[in-house]
């Protein structure tokens, strides 16, 4: 249990996907203008990360490794993630229209999100058990959502601030990202 918790915290805060591993930077700047859409994107990422990790864990340790073709993981993982996102999208669209409205266009965007592919690779490389894999995937998603929400909260405030004209928009967002990254460095010695 202790181990699971440290994996979760490690993925969410210490090795945060955005600020420490530099994965998933496109949504970090693209979808962080409004808090509501940032949270929708974050929830979608948590869903897909958990699903993709579960399926790729089974494929990797029960199929690829026993047959000695684990170098095929890249192409297989991409295939699995792309079709998983498709399936999740149509099932949400057909069964729960409210949830579909909330997630909107963010679900298909995740197909090409490097953070999702990243978490499957990290799980495969670290020789996690199935439960550990799920803890790690969930932690990665929560960390991603947390940083996205913090960033969008700051950027909503920045809209109202009197910023020098040449810094308006993305430049000041980059500066804020730098400061956020430095703040997250402080988690370094926790586990």
């Amino acid at each position: 249990m202790n181990n699971l918790f440290s994996i979760f915290i490690g993925m969410a805060l210490i090795n945060n996907f955005i600020l420490t591993r530099f994965l998933g930077l496109c949504p970090f700047f693209g979808v962080s203008k409004k808090l509501s859409s940032a949270v929708s994107m974050g929830v979608a990422v948590i869903l897909v990360m958990a699903g993709a990790s579960a399926i790729t864990w089974v494929l990797f340790f029960k199929v690829l490794v026993p047959f000695g073709v684990d170098y095929m993981s890249t192409v297989i993982f991409i295939l699995v993630i792309a079709s998983l996102v498709q399936i999740v999208e149509i099932s949400i669209r057909r069964t729960n229209i409210t949830l579909y409205n909330a997630l909107g266009i963010y679900l298909p965007l995740i197909t090409t999100n490097c953070a999702v592919l990243g978490v499957t690779f990290i799980n495969a490389r670290s020789d996690f058990t199935f439960v550990e894999t799920m803890a790690s995937a969930f932690g990665a998603g929560v960390g991603f959502t947390l940083v996205l929400a913090i960033m969008s909260g700051i950027r909503e405030r920045l809209e109202l601030a009197d910023i020098p004209e040449s810094f308006e928009g993305v430049p000041v967002a980059f500066l804020v990202a730098m400061m956020l990254g430095m703040a997250f460095l402080a988690f370094g010695g926790m586990v």
Partner: peptide
């Protein structure tokens, strides 16, 4: 064979 089967499996699932 692996790639074909995984691809077919994904297609079938969709």
């Amino acid at each position: 064979v692996t790639l074909t089967l995984v691809g077919l499996g994904c297609g079938l699932a969709i």
